[in-house]
Design a protein around this nucleic acid. Structure first.
Length: 104
DNA sequence: AGTTTGACTGGAG
DNA sequence: CCTCCAGCCAAAC
């Protein structure tokens, strides 16, 4: 575990924690906001790690197309409970629920 | 130190 | 909507 990775994890946690209810963010966006747009895979790993001992709403983070994690089925139910609409089964309506930190 | 894996991304079939 | 392939990055083996 490097200090840089820890800082990245802390930043990720803050970004995810800043996502309002009913909105979602992609791993790539979180990774970019955390300073490593190419390390989106790390976001998932870190998210799972912090989700085990933190109250971070990691379920508000989905993959690039609004598709939920392939191995985390309850995330869909959690998002539905927040008011997020799904196009069919595993696709979130990103055009409507995508969280924009500022601008645009 | 080299290989494999994955809560990713993007595009093609 | 689902599967496969190629690319990228850090952790795990």
């Amino acid at each position: 575990m490097k200090t840089d990775t820890v800082a990245f994890a802390v930043d990720v946690r803050q970004v995810v924690c800043s996502i309002p209810a009913g909105s979602v963010l992609t791993y790539g966006d979180v990774a970019a906001l955390a300073g490593s747009p190419a390390s989106s895979r790390l976001v998932g790993k870190i998210l799972g790690a912090i989700g085990m001992y933190s109250e971070v709403p990691c379920h508000r983070v989905v993959n690039f197309e609004g598709r939920i994690a392939p191995h985390w089925p309850e995330q869909e139910l959690l998002l539905k409970a927040e008011g997020v609409t799904f196009r069919r089964t595993k696709y979130v309506d990103l055009t409507r629920h995508r969280f924009r930190p500022t601008l645009i």
